[in-house]
C-alpha cells in the first residue's frame, strides 16, 4: 500500500521543467513508477518518443538519475546491455550499489517497432522493468495509428474518410503477449489509480528477473480531449473495462480492481474528439461493435483471473 504523504516526500527523479504537453499522461505514469523506488538507485532507459524528446533537449535534462536513450525500437535491448554490465561488474566486485533498471517507451516503441527487442529482453530474463505508456498512437510524429490504437479511432494514418470511418482493426493485447513470456511480473495499470500503480511498480522492482507494466496514458493532442480530463479519462478507461487493472504474478492472473458497476464505453469515448464520428447516427453499428469488443475482452479476462 502506498501512501500519498510518504510518496510526496520521496525524491523526484523526473524533475519539473520538461516539455511534456499539459495533460500528458506519460508524466504522471513516470513519476508514479519512479516514486515506487523509494530512493533506490536506478538507471533509466527510454525509447525515442515524446517522453524522450520532451525531457532531454541538450544541454538540459529532466532526469535526476542516469538515463540512456539509444533509438526508437531498442530501449529494452539497450537497457538489457546496461543490466548485463551491472551483473558483470557486480560479480567482479567493481560495483557495490544495489541498482534498479527501468525502461519507458510509448506504444509505438513498445507494441510495434520495439516488440522484438522487448520480447528478447523479457525472454532472457534481465532484471529490469519495462513500462509502456500507452497513449494509443504515434503521438510524437503527429498521431499516426499504432497496433495499440483503439478500434475506429481517427488518426492521421487511419483518418475518418468518406469511405473508411477510422481504424478498422482492434487493439493488440500486448500485456497478455508479455505475460505469456512467463516472466516474473506483469501488470496493467492506470495513473488515475495511483495507489494500484505504485504498488505494482514496487512489486515489479522487487521481482527477481524481468517485469513489465502497461499503463494507459491519455494524450490530449491525439485524443482531442481537454487536458484537465486526463485523470478522469484514465479513470473512465478502467471503469468502462476498456483498460482493466490486473497483474500476472508467477503465471497467476489476478484482477486488482473490479468496477462495482461497469460503465458504458460511450462515457470514455464521448470526451475524446478522435471518436466524435462514432456518435453520428450512421455509425451506431461501430459504437455497438466497440462495446461488444470491450465486453468480450473483459469476459475473457474474468475467466483468466478466475473470476468466472
Amino acid at each position: 500500500m502506498a501512501n500519498l504523504r510518504e510518496l510526496s516526500k520521496g525524491p523526484e527523479i523526473f524533475t519539473p521543467g520538461h516539455r511534456l504537453c499539459a495533460g500528458c499522461g506519460a508524466g504522471p505514469v513516470v513519476r508514479q513508477v519512479l516514486h515506487a523506488l523509494e530512493g533506490a538507485p536506478v538507471v533509466i532507459g527510454n525509447a525515442t518518443g515524446c517522453l524522450e524528446v520532451a525531457s532531454t533537449i541538450y544541454p538540459f535534462t529532466s532526469w535526476d538519475a542516469s538515463w540512456i536513450h539509444n533509438a526508437f525500437e531498442n530501449a529494452a535491448a539497450t537497457l538489457s546491455g546496461v543490466e548485463a554490465a551491472y551483473q558483470s561488474l557486480k560479480r567482479q566486485g567493481k560495483i557495490n550499489d544495489e541498482i534498479k533498471f527501468v525502461a519507458f517507451g510509448g506504444d509505438g516503441g513498445t507494441y510495434d517497432i520495439g516488440l522484438q527487442s522487448l520480447s528478447g529482453a523479457m525472454e532472457r530474463g534481465h532484471d529490469l522493468l519495462y513500462v509502456c505508456y500507452d497513449n494509443g498512437a504515434y503521438m510524437n510524429t503527429g498521431i499516426q495509428r499504432s497496433s495499440a490504437t483503439p478500434f475506429a479511432a481517427d488518426t492521421t494514418t487511419s483518418p475518418v474518410g468518406q469511405a473508411i470511418p477510422g481504424k478498422t482493426q482492434g487493439r493488440k493485447d500486448l500485456t497478455a503477449i508479455i505475460a505469456d513470456h512467463r516472466i516474473a511480473y506483469v501488470a496493467q495499470a492506470s495513473p488515475a489509480y495511483w495507489n494500484d500503480l505504485v504498488t505494482k511498480a514496487k512489486k515489479a522492482f522487487a521481482a527477481k528477473g524481468s517485469a513489465f507494466m502497461n499503463t494507459i496514458a491519455p494524450c490530449p493532442r491525439g485524443w482531442r480531449s481537454d487536458p484537465a480530463l486526463t485523470v478522469e479519462l484514465s479513470k473512465l478507461a478502467v471503469e468502462t473495462c476498456f483498460w482493466p487493472l490486473y497483474e500476472v504474478e508467477n503465471g497467476k492472473w489476478r484482477l486488482t480492481f473490479k468496477p462495482r458497476e461497469k460503465k458504458p464505453i460511450t462515457e470514455w469515448l464521448k470526451p475524446q474528439g478522435r471518436f466524435k464520428h462514432l456518435f453520428r447516427a450512421e455509425n451506431k453499428g461501430l459504437l455497438e461493435q466497440f462495446q461488444a469488443d470491450v465486453d468480450q475482452r473483459w469476459e475473457d479476462l474474468l475467466v483468466r483471473c478466475g473470476e468466472k
Binding site: 531498442n74 535491448a77 537497457l79 558483470s88 528478447g120
Partner: peptide, 23 residues
C-alpha cells in the same frame, strides 16, 4: 556476461548499453 540477443540490432544496442554502463 554473455548476452544471447535475438538480433544484431539488439546485439549492437545491448553492446552500446553495456559500454555506456562502464563495461
Amino acid at each position: 556476461e554473455f548476452v544471447t540477443v535475438e538480433s544484431e540490432h539488439s546485439a549492437m544496442s545491448a553492446t552500446i548499453g553495456a559500454s555506456a554502463a562502464g563495461a
